[in-house]
């Protein structure tokens, strides 16, 4: 897990094709048969999960994943479950500030 990841949300997926990213969001839908889920983070992001991964709908997660080269989905590498009380307004602000201080981030 040495690879650095950049914190983004849905509007920034397109700018980060092929990159490792970190997204905090709420699980909107999860389909175990196709290993596919939708994460809501200032917009919707389609996730491609590994078989065996499972997400609960309406729970908050931080996922680390790789954005597909066509920016259509994010291939999930790691999932961390977060508490239910996440302030998404603050998450949005954090995402926008992280892009402005490359000294502290990737």
């Amino acid at each position: 897990m040495d690879a650095a990841s950049i914190r983004i949300d849905a509007p920034l997926v397109a700018q980060n094709q092929g990159k490792i990213v970190r997204i905090i969001g709420t699980c909107e839908s999860f389909d175990s048969s196709s290993n596919h889920a939708v994460l809501k983070s200032n917009g919707s992001i389609s996730l491609v999960l590994n078989s065996g991964d499972s997400l609960d709908i309406n729970k908050n997660y931080e996922i680390i994943g790789k954005v597909n080269t066509d920016a259509s989905s994010v291939r999930v590498l790691s999932i961390i479950e977060l508490s239910d009380n996440i302030n998404f307004e603050a998450v949005q602000k954090l995402v926008s500030y992280v892009q402005k201080v490359p000294e502290l981030y990737y």
Partner: peptide, 17 residues
């Protein structure tokens, strides 16, 4: 346990920087 701490911490790190 409260994961808002991640956000808070990162914001304070940016602020401090």
């Amino acid at each position: 346990t409260d994961h808002n701490e991640i956000i808070y911490h990162n914001l304070s790190a940016i602020n401090n920087h």
